[in-house]
Amino acid sequence: MTGAGRSKSASLRIRSRVSILVGTVLFLVLAGAGVATASWTASGALTVPATAGRLSFTQSGGTGLAARYKKTNLAASGSITVTNTGTVPGTFTLDVNSPPPNLFADAVVATGWASASPCTSTPPVGAAVVTDTLTNGIEVLGASLAPQATEYLCIMTVITTAQAAGNGNADLTLTLTAHQGSWLFQPLPLTFSQSANGSIQ
């Protein structure tokens, strides 16, 4: 064997031993360095009972809103009784309008407010009163009602003298919507017909 060959062979041997050394160290370090951990646990189970309520409202009354206007009778009014018949509290709104719009509905102005007591001809002090034509409609805001509680919504309509002298008619639709968070409830709307016939004084 030549000198160069012996040197190469020695170099290979050294490299081989270094490899063995490094490999063994790595193996032993990785295999032995892990730390075993353990902890004690205990648990207690609790049954969680829950029952959901039901959102439900009713509306009734308002029959005075069915009107035939004449020159001597330019106004109509009605009291809507709203009751929370569900088992959870809820707020509500009442929309009063007359779709589709027509000249008669343009000539009728609706006014509404909420009241804790039965309706009178004028709104109580501090009541939130809303007014607009039937074509545009009004939205009356009710209070938050506890289950079985009742509130009254007072609605008045007034027609202009000129329109009362002419002919026309419209249907008032009263749509109640109750809310409780993401829950909504709408009972069947109330509908009242209004008309004018100038030939009738």
Binding site: S43, G44, A45, P49, A50, A52, G181, S182
Partner: peptide, 24 residues
Amino acid sequence: LPTASAAAQSQTATGLTLTVLGAQ
């Protein structure tokens, strides 16, 4: 949850279990 669907109305949840876990 505030976003609970209306389908949850009048329902009863039975068998829902909260496990309280104690770890050392």
